[in-house]
Amino acid sequence: MLKEWTIFVFMAADNDLDVAATSDLVEMRRWQGSERANIVIELDRRRASLSDNDSGKFSSKRYLLNGELSELMDLGETNTGDPLVLREFLEWGARAFPSRKTALVIWNHGGGVKDPAIYGKQASPMRRALFGSKIDQDEKPRMKWVAMDDTAQDFLETAELSVALETPFKLDILAFDACFMSNFEVFYQIRNQANFAVASQMIVPVDGFEYDQLFNTVTAPECDTGQEWVVRCVDHFKNRYDDGEEAACLSGYQLSYCSHFIEGLNELSGWLLEHWKGCTLATLRATQKAALFRDRSYIDVGNFVAELKNEIADPLFHNSCEKLEGALKTGTVANTFYKVPEISGLSLYLPLIKPDEVVWQRYEKLDFSHAAPNWLELIRKVLS
Rank of each mutant, 00 (worst) to 15 (best):
S133M: 10
T151Y: 05
K140N: 05
E157P: 00
G111Q: 03
A103R: 02
I173L: 05
K170P: 04
G110I: 00
T167I: 05
P125L: 09
G56V: 08
E166D: 15
Q137Y: 14
L75H: 03
N53Y: 09
D172M: 06
S60T: 14
T158L: 02
Q153C: 06
A147K: 02
F155G: 03
I135W: 12
L171N: 06
N53W: 08
L171Y: 02
H109C: 14
Q153S: 12
G67C: 06
G67Y: 07
P116V: 10
N108R: 13
E160I: 07
P98E: 07
G67N: 13
G76S: 01
M181E: 02
N79P: 01
G132Y: 05
F131A: 09
K144E: 15
R142M: 12
L165W: 00
L174E: 03
D54P: 08
F176V: 13
L64E: 03
S99F: 04
G67P: 07
F180H: 02
D177H: 00
A129S: 07
L50K: 11
S60V: 13
L104F: 07
R142D: 06
L90R: 01
M143A: 09
R62D: 04
F58C: 05
V113F: 10
G110S: 03
S60K: 04
I135N: 12
E160F: 02
K134R: 12
T80F: 00
A178M: 07
A96W: 07
S124C: 00
P98G: 07
A94E: 14
M148N: 07
V85W: 00
A164Q: 12
R142P: 00
R128M: 13
K134P: 03
F176L: 14
R127K: 13
R62Q: 06
S60E: 10
K170F: 08
R100D: 15
F97K: 14
W145F: 11
Q137T: 11
D54M: 14
L50S: 15
E139V: 14
Q122H: 10
K170E: 14
A159V: 10
F131H: 11
M73E: 13
S182H: 08
L174N: 00
C179D: 00
G111A: 15
D115T: 15
F89R: 11
A129K: 00
K144S: 09
K121W: 10
E71P: 08
F176I: 11
A94D: 15
W107K: 08
M143P: 04
R62G: 05
L75I: 05
A147L: 12
M73K: 11
A178T: 14
L64W: 03
T167H: 13
G67E: 11
K134M: 13
D172Q: 02
G111M: 10
A96M: 15
N183Y: 06
E91P: 01
A152H: 01
W92R: 00
L69F: 02
G111N: 10
L104H: 03
G111R: 11
P83N: 14
L64S: 03
L171G: 08
T167C: 09
A123E: 14
R142I: 10
E88L: 09
S124K: 04
G67L: 09
Q153A: 13
L84M: 12
K61F: 09
